[in-house]
């Protein structure tokens, strides 16, 4: 019988916790965009209508401005931001082109069902310079999507409508079961938005894009129910170590 004095106790498996999977995806996207030259900027989640809508060419007649789509606070003097674009407006007002900004964080829409949550996360980017073109936007979007989903993924651009970009596009990827899935919205910054930010649209043009972090997270991790991210279930969270 050998000696018991030199026995190594059982190895302690690491008892580490985990970062929330939505923040993991968000950080990944921010790091990716910083690698392309974008500077990460933060902004408030409570915004004025001016910054959330007016400056972005979202007119009073746009459905998003109705009480059923936007949360209004403090006697309708402010809104919970419906996107992170107001952060970009503030940046454009504060600095001169060329500029490349990425904003990210929580956004709010008055929606709550199996596929929509009243709070979700966005990562958006804007790049303003002389002679920014739609074909350059396509190049950047290809880079982003290939970095997220791999070089083999098939990409489709579709015309769409966002008041702050013109032309506007939605971008789909072809899923494993051969269905097109929308992953991103983008476009050429509407000259009205540039002028609102005191940027001469005869000299400068820009591109902008936005991703829904939950959407990307669901696709990357294979999570089918968006609500799972916010149950704070440790069995769920611990999978994302």
């Amino acid at each position: 019988m050998s000696s018991f004095n030199d026995i190594e106790p059982p190895k302690l498996s690491p008892q580490s916790g985990t970062m929330h999977p939505i923040n993991q995806v968000k950080d990944f996207l921010i790091d990716l965009l910083q690698g392309y030259g974008f500077t990460a900027v933060d902004g408030p989640e409570i915004e004025s209508e001016e910054f959330n809508f007016d400056m972005l060419n979202i007119k009073k007649t746009h459905p998003a401005r109705q009480m059923h789509d936007t949360f209004y606070v403090n006697n309708k003097t402010k809104v919970l931001r419906t996107h992170t674009s107001p952060v970009q407006i503030r940046s454009m007002l504060d600095s001169k082109p060329p500029l490349a900004i990425t904003s990210s964080g929580k956004v709010f829409r008055k929606d709550d069902d199996a596929t929509h949550l009243p709070m979700f996360h966005q990562v958006e980017g804007i790049y303003i310079d002389e002679q920014v073109t739609f074909s350059q936007l396509k190049d950047l979007i290809h880079k982003i999507i290939y970095a997220i989903f791999g070089q083999e993924i098939q990409i489709r651009f579709r015309p769409s409508y966002f008041p702050f970009t013109e032309p506007s596009a939605e971008v789909d990827i072809l899923s494993e079961n051969c269905k097109w899935l929308e992953v991103l919205g983008c476009g050429i910054v509407n000259p009205v938005v540039l002028e609102n930010c005191n940027i001469d649209s005869n000299i400068y043009s820009g591109l902008a894009f936005g991703l829904g972090v939950e959407r990307i997270a669901m696709l990357k991790y294979g999570v089918n129910d968006i609500r799972d991210f916010y149950k704070s279930n440790l069995d769920f969270l611990n999978q994302f170590k």
């Binding site: 030259g37 990460a40 490349a100 790049y127 074909s135 350059q136 489709r156 651009f157 015309p159 013109e166």
Partner: peptide, 30 residues
């Protein structure tokens, strides 16, 4: 810009070629 979108739709967004983009790297972390 609206007219540009009209032409782009007729051409097809997927048929518009990509051209390389170079953004001046100026990123800093807050």
């Amino acid at each position: 810009n609206d007219l540009a979108e009209e032409v782009a739709r007729v051409i097809g967004y997927n048929n518009i070629p990509s051209s390389p983009i170079k953004i001046l790297k100026n990123s800093k972390k807050s």
